[in-house]
Each structure stands twice: as C-alpha cells, then as structure tokens.
Amino acid sequence: MIPLSWYLVFSAALFSIGLFGVLARKNAIAILMGVELMLNAVNINLIAFWRYLTPTQVAGPAFVTMVFATAAAEVAVGLALIISAYRRRNTVTADEIDLLKG
C-alpha cells in the first residue's frame, strides 16, 4: 500500500523541477515546458487527493479535465507570443527580449 504522502512528495519534486526550469532556462520554449511540468504536478496532487480522501465523488477528475483545457489554452497563447516575439526580435532567448529594460 503506497501512502498518500509518497505521491505528494513525487508531485512536489516534479513541481520543483518545473520551477527550476522556469527560473533558469534561457530558451523561451523551455520555460513554457517548465510551466507544463508544474501543471502536471498539480494534476498528480488532484488525482492523489481524490483517490485517497474522496473517492466517491468525481470532483478530482472533473477539475483535472479543466486543468487540461487551461494548459492547452496556455500553450496556444504562449507559443503564439513566442512566434510573435520571434518575428519582431528574431530570437527566442528570454534574456534578449528586454525592450522594457531601463
């Protein structure tokens, strides 16, 4: 029997790895991948809590489907922003998109 906390530690590990990807990667597309990893960790948390605490209600899976839709919307807008920035600045390096820098 796997304790609930193992799933939570696993999800926390994935979330931290995603956070590090967002903070440290220079490629704007890799930053978006880190955000995807963090959303995925949230889904693991939702499913694990649903399975261990309230398995008779389907609130957990229902909200995971909404997180799927949100992730898809976020990726579509994020990649569109990257393509738009690439057209103007001809780069996807996050350091070089610094028009607002004083």
């Binding site: 979330f15 903070l23 440290a24 399975r51 261990y52």
Partner: peptide, 26 residues
Amino acid sequence: GIVLAFLLLIEAVYGIVFRVNSAATL
C-alpha cells in the same frame, strides 16, 4: 534558480511529512 527550487522542495516535503494525515488509506 537551484536555490529557490530546492527551498520550495524542502518546504513542500516538510509540510507533507509533518502535516498530512498519514492515516489516509485507500
């Protein structure tokens, strides 16, 4: 980034180990 991510991980694991009711079973 490494320092911040590790801080988050340690904080989360601490919270999980010491706060979650481990009596939750399948």
